[in-house]
Design a protein around this nucleic acid. Structure first.
Lengths: 121, 121
DNA sequence: GTCGTTACAACGTCTGTCGTAGTATATCTG
DNA sequence: CAGATATACTACGACAGACGTTGTAACGAC
């Protein structure tokens, strides 16, 4: 199966994570699994990418962390989205729509335009 | 007007440039103007970003450069797309469609989902 | 003559992602 | 009970792409 490279989704990792925090707090491992599942395995975020996103977004005030023991006795770091995080998420949604509009000016849906000749070898 | 940040379009700069080379060779300044015009001013690529993309893509074999004097006597560096470049462009078009599909799982079109409560302060 | 436009190149900085490695607990398998 | 697997992170250094800044040079407009 084709999967997504980090280069192209890079600008949306924070947005994706914030989306998964909109309804309830969550923690790294769960978010990682949710991304994989909701994308049908097409995107698997790297652990280091995820955890460094948490650090960055907490520093920026988009999320706050708290520690809590799970039923099984394990310690987990949970994150909740803040109002600033919700606002940031909204902006990113708008930016996504704009980006989509712009990029699609430069994309041949089928890619077939690339087949027409006219270039160097 | 809202414009696009480099973070979100980052993965598609090469694709956009290659698109503009599909039909005929071109050069930096012209490509820069075309991107601005075709995006209705929503995306203005930085000069350094553009020229470093040229260098990188020539190294990767996606484009080839040649120098030519314009009518006005000025020297310009033109770039043509290669077969490998066309192939790369096709792949990126496919990847775009996949990325779009995946990202939209995590985007509320209106952004209004972010307004529902449930988070921390 | 100097201002704006065209057309680049060089250099160092910053940010986000990644590879690798390590820690520690819980659950499953034999 | 040992060892494998899944869970749940943390630390560290490397790298690539984008960016800010500066410099160069040629041309036309005024």
């Amino acid at each position: 199966m084709t999967t997504i490279s980090s280069d192209v989704i890079r600008g949306y990792n924070d947005t994706i994570i914030l989306y998964l925090l909109l309804d309830r707090p969550s923690y790294g491992y769960e978010i990682s699994r949710m991304i994989r599942q909701l994308s049908d395995g097409k995107y698997v975020i790297k652990e280091t990418t995820l955890y460094s996103a948490f650090t960055r977004m907490e520093k920026n005030g988009y999320i706050v962390s708290f520690s809590r023991s799970a039923e099984n006795g394990k310690r987990r770091t949970y994150y909740s989205i803040t109002d600033a995080g919700r606002e940031y998420y909204r902006e990113k949604c708008e930016e996504w729509n704009l980006t989509k509009e712009v990029v699609e000016h430069f994309i041949s849906v089928t890619g077939t335009r690339a087949l027409t000749d006219g270039g160097a070898r």
